[in-house]
Design a protein around this nucleic acid. Structure first.
Ligand SMILES: [Mn+2]
Ligand SMILES: [Mn+2]
Ligand SMILES: [Zn+2]
Ligand SMILES: [Zn+2]
Lengths: 146, 146
DNA sequence: TTCGTAACACAACATTGTTGCAATTAATAA
DNA sequence: TTATTAATTGCAACAATGTTGTGTTACGAA
């Protein structure tokens, strides 16, 4: 882990009133260095030897509550996690972007620029939030299968 | 179970090349008589004494593959099942309607009339299907908490 | 009626996530 | 620096959901 990055992670933890621990830094580092969301099984695979499974779950829950990361359930119901935009706070997530779930590599991508279009709902339903998951084949998989 | 309904279920099974069994009729009956999607835990609760748990899972999987029912994962990752529109077939589901997940009663509603609006995706992603889940408070819960 | 296959039940297992509690450690004050 | 304390962690035990394998049962066609 590079010093510049560690500094960034420490700031993030400090800002949210969380203690600086090795486990938390590791989780932030893994999530930060990937170009797609990270699944819970993947996380457990790569840092599950160093960090207790339960601790990992608790870190993820804490981060989500603080608005540091957001959770995306893919089409198999697997939990995937991605760093939030820095405008997210404990009680206000701003991640209402579309997510893409590749049927081939199973990765989940945050399409940060693609917002969920407005919708007219039937009467009587009060809308709080929306989750749109698009399925198909991702850029990478399309190239590799050509 | 009324005879008229049983007849309908039998036709559905026959049409899809599935044997008429008590377990399958029961599942179809439960799913048909509810105004919202039915969760796996609920199904297991009410028919889990009569039907083996594994059998229930296999029936649900078969029905989904045949296009008899579709599965909706709610915000907790719980599987919910609803009867398909009768235009659905084994290889072509036509259930691209919006689903509503109530934060209070946790029910999942099929909003059959509400279609997912078109979306312009970033280049490189090939879209096969879309899933939009709207969260909030449902009609019933709003009334009962007034 | 017989026969082959589809459907079933039961046991065993895997994965994902939770809870309680004791031990450790990071942040702060003395 | 050392002491204090609340937050964090690790471990054990458990619950829920879903899968796989295998032997048995029962439909439906011949
Ligand atoms: Mn995202
Ligand atoms: Mn539906
Ligand atoms: Zn892919
Ligand atoms: Zn409700």
């Amino acid at each position: 882990m590079e010093n510049i990055k560690i500094q960034k992670y420490e700031d993030l933890l400090l800002k949210n009133g969380l203690k600086r621990t090795g486990a938390r830094l590791q989780v932030l580092d893994v999530l930060s260095n990937r170009n797609s969301a990270t699944s819970q099984p993947y996380l457990e695979n790569i840092i599950g030897k160093a960090i207790d499974r339960v601790t990992l779950y608790r870190i993820l829950k804490t981060f989500e509550e603080k608005g540091i990361i957001h959770r995306i359930l893919d089409n198999q119901g697997t939990a995937n996690y991605a760093i939030c935009s820095n405008s997210c706070t404990a009680h206000n997530h701003h991640d209402e972007h579309v997510h893409f779930n590749c049927n081939n590599c199973l990765k989940v991508y945050c399409l940060a620029e693609t917002k969920i279009p407005p919708l007219k709902m039937p009467a009587g339903f009060e809308v709080y939030s929306m989750n749109l998951i698009v399925s198909g084949i991702c850029k990478d998989c399309k190239q590799h299968t050509n």
